[in-house]
Simulated assay, not measured.
Amino acid sequence: MTEPVPVEPAGWLTLPDVAERLDVSISKVHQMIRERELLAVRRDGVRRVPAELVANRTVLKHLPGVLNLLHDAGYADEEALRWLYLADDTLPGTPAEALAGDRAREIKRRAQALGF
């Protein structure tokens, strides 16, 4: 059996783009990242956020909880990104895609199980 390969997020937002989309200051975006309400990783030397994690003018509702569970399980930001974007045939796509739909509680349960 082959190892699942993570898919790339559909798009990336720079931190100023996130601030504009959420209608908050750039310092608030940095705070959200520090407090694990939002995930940012470096791409081409610039911190970026997967666009689908920012739904309209808010962060996906269950994202902060999942990020905290992944952090508690020892996942660094890059590892959390990989986990969120790893294709899973038991889900409609990836955990990140399922977070945006009606499977968010299942994603939180799976993230919590990683800590055991």
Results as ranks from 00 to 15, higher is better:
residue 68 N to A: 12
residue 63 L to Y: 03
residue 64 P to F: 14
residue 1 M to D: 09
residue 42 R to H: 12
residue 71 H to Q: 03
residue 18 V to I: 07
residue 41 V to K: 11
residue 60 L to M: 05
residue 46 V to S: 08
residue 98 A to I: 12
residue 28 K to E: 13
residue 44 D to R: 15
residue 83 W to C: 07
residue 17 D to P: 00
residue 24 V to P: 01
residue 6 P to I: 14
residue 113 A to Q: 14
residue 40 A to F: 09
residue 69 L to V: 07
residue 27 S to H: 13
residue 91 L to Y: 04
residue 85 Y to A: 02
residue 44 D to V: 09
residue 114 L to W: 02
residue 101 G to T: 04
residue 30 H to A: 09
residue 110 R to Y: 02
residue 5 V to T: 10
residue 20 E to S: 08
residue 67 L to H: 08
residue 16 P to A: 15
residue 103 R to I: 01
residue 2 T to V: 06
residue 6 P to T: 12
residue 98 A to R: 11
residue 28 K to W: 15
residue 88 D to M: 02
residue 51 A to N: 01
residue 8 E to Q: 11
residue 1 M to S: 09
residue 2 T to G: 09
residue 77 D to V: 10
residue 72 D to V: 05
residue 93 G to W: 04
residue 15 L to A: 13
residue 82 R to T: 13
residue 76 A to F: 05
residue 82 R to H: 13
residue 38 L to E: 09
residue 90 T to L: 04
residue 45 G to H: 01
residue 73 A to V: 14
residue 81 L to F: 07
residue 16 P to C: 15
residue 38 L to V: 12
residue 65 G to Q: 08
residue 101 G to L: 08
residue 9 P to Q: 06
residue 36 R to W: 14
residue 48 R to Q: 14
residue 10 A to M: 03
residue 23 D to P: 00
residue 45 G to E: 02
residue 45 G to Q: 01
residue 45 G to M: 01
residue 3 E to H: 09
residue 47 R to I: 03
residue 8 E to L: 10
residue 44 D to F: 05
residue 17 D to A: 15
residue 66 V to S: 11
residue 91 L to G: 05
residue 29 V to W: 02
residue 76 A to R: 14
residue 59 V to W: 00
residue 108 K to A: 13
residue 44 D to Q: 14
residue 108 K to Q: 14
residue 4 P to I: 14
residue 50 P to M: 06
residue 70 L to T: 04
